[in-house]
Write a protein that binds this DNA or RNA. Structure first.
Lengths: 210, 210
DNA sequence: AACAGATTTAATCAATTGATTAAATCAAAT
DNA sequence: ATTTGATTTAATCAATTGATTAAATCTGTT
């Protein structure tokens, strides 16, 4: 009983072991997903024993929730910030979002697929537990986009389409990377170069759709 | 020994049991992925016993390979056919691909995420075993696309970008559907309507990029 | 040095899960 | 009706896997 609560009794000033476990868990979970991950693999990757993992985090599920929370936070944070910036123009938001996300994803390319894969099984549970209330329609970006569309007389494109195109063109290549490598015979470096090109081109394409 | 081979000794004219198992396996694998699938769940879904599943398919892995093969075939078949049609124009190919894929994916929305998720873990093994040699660069579509781009004097966009945009704008919403439902508060019917709109709009967007 | 609490480990448990076996039932042919 | 092979089931096995326990070691305090 008491033993099991020790890690809560005070904040660990060193935290190196706890951090090592979390780092290992993040890596393994991101690579394999929850179901395919063995807690022993996490322990091995962290260079510690399986019991220690459960001593620190009580269970695979609790550890996973922590990792998932941080991952969701990390992934959506820049999106929310950029979309709600009060001063920047619509064009600037598009430029910045594209540049920042591609930069971020080149460093951790497996995050989108990880999030989506896990969200498929759990659905509501995750977003509710982790407070991802990115109210898309209420962002500054959505308002600016709506105004811009109404200015143009032609066919009034729904804002959601442009949002899907922007995120899709940016994120989809990373999700499809495993397939791309096979189907288009593309190496790591080639892919990187391609995405750097896209960070300039996607904003142009999107603006031409406005 | 001999018992285990029975199903191979002649072609089952009825085949209803084998088909029931395969149908159940397809459903469960597509929904949960290989690692999260329990063979007992497949057996239950098929209305038969676990032993019977192994009697017919020897192992979870072999059953999975069969399902994966058929799924890959099904998914890439229309792509390959359309991309290699000798007579249709570039525009017609874009129109047809978009329309057919969205129609197909509205019926089985979970296929892209299934394929990509499994390809992440296995990488090369799958595409080699299943002969997915979609040589993208050698398709009629790629040739037509390249010619079209060279006609225009401006900045010579790499064909791969347009390919990524086309597939991305079409397929990405299905992959991101679990997230969309949460983040954009979108129901089943709304999503369907959205994708039907897109099947008209994506070709226009793509053509404006040419 | 000695104690107390925190950290770490080896050993083990219990549940899950893929797979097998041997027997029972069913269907068709003679 | 009997036989033969195909289909189906109940029972069980062995390996994997998440989790626990009790003991050992380490760290800082007195």
């Amino acid at each position: 009983m008491t033993t099991k609560m020790r890690q809560k009794e005070h904040i660990n000033p060193d935290a190196s072991t706890e951090e090592k476990i979390k780092a290992a868990a993040r890596a393994v979970f991101h690579e394999k997903g929850y179901a395919a991950t063995r807690t022993r693999d996490i322990a091995d990757a962290a260079g510690i024993n399986l019991a220690l993992l459960n001593y620190y985090f009580r269970s695979k599920e609790k550890l996973f929730h922590i990792i998932m929370s941080e991952t969701l936070q990390q992934f959506f944070k820049s999106l929310i910030v950029i979309f709600n910036h009060p001063d920047s123009t619509l064009e600037q938001k598009i430029d910045e979002l594209c540049a920042r996300y591609i930069d971020q994803l080149l460093r951790e390319p497996q995050i989108p697929l990880f999030i989506i894969s896990e969200l498929r099984s759990n659905g509501d549970a995750l977003t509710q537990n982790h407070r991802i209330n990115l109210r898309l329609k209420e962002t500054v970006f959505a308002r600016q986009l709506k105004e811009r569309i109404e200015q143009k007389g032609g066919t009034p494109t729904e804002p959601i389409h442009l949002f899907l195109n922007l995120i899709g063109m940016t994120v989809f290549p990373f999700i499809a990377q495993p397939v791309l490598k096979q189907v288009a015979e593309m190496g790591e470096e080639q892919f990187r170069a391609l995405m750097l090109q896209r960070s300039k081109m996607i904003p142009q394409w999107i603006k031409s759709m406005l």
